[in-house]
Amino acid sequence: MQKRDTDYLNKEAAAIRQGIVEAIGVDKKGHLGGSMSSADIVAALYFYKMRHWPQEPENPARDRFIFSKGHSVLAQYAALARCGYFAWESLPTVKQLGSFLQGHPEKDRTPGIEANTGSLGQGLSLGLGMVLGGRLDSLDYKVYVIVGDAELAEGQIWEAATAAAFYKASNLVAIVDHNKLQASGVIKDMYDVGNPAEKFAAFGWRVLEIDGHNMDEILDALDAADEPNEQPLAIVAHTVKGKGVSFAEGVPSFHNGAMDQGQYDSALQEIAERRGE
């Protein structure tokens, strides 16, 4: 764990947002919206909460982070680059033929990526497997899994939620990026998945609800996962899709949209202001 310094962490979150924009580039489609909504949580994980060693990405004692909503991996790529897992300059190669940065995370290709995800619904199960493996090895690492709110429509999420409660997987932390939008529109209008907090509670999980862009609330929730308990923890983080880039905030088309040169420049400008540059 690293020092609790919300100013520093907010700046790292802004750096992650800059990396997301740079990774997408101009006139190319990229998953801007969901990457932006997760950015503050990802910053809190990599720069505050998780024990991890960029020079030893396979250290068995490391905490693990799985982006089950793998399309938002741009936020993770930016965080990994900031941590030194690979060069920041690689970010614009995302999705380029032969790049080690794929459109969805692949463990074999990218240092620091823990699992192959993005076919939605599978990350929580993968995380549970890692927790059970750690238990057999008497390792107390935690596994943090960010799932999307629309992803909660996948039945496998609830298979995993049942199994995690049954196995008392208290080292498993599910973080719901509850940005209220799905690829095709507003969740409430398109396919309402109900109340995530109530659902996880009904499946036997501890549940916290936070503002997923308030760094203090994020840190408090992540710290709460360390309290001795027999239940896995679900953190329902209320977020804004596209957060940090005004023209994309709450706009469904920026789930996987392209920015023109003007939008690209204005996005970087807005983020730079937030970083205090």
């Binding site: 699992a115 599978q122 199960s125 993968l126 497997g129 890692m130 059970l132 496998q156 298979e159 199994a163």
Partner: peptide
């Protein structure tokens, strides 16, 4: 479905 993916998670810890 969960079982197969949990198995994959276990394998990623060396099991």
């Amino acid at each position: 479905q969960n079982m197969v993916a949990v198995g994959a998670g276990l394998s990623l810890t060396g099991k």
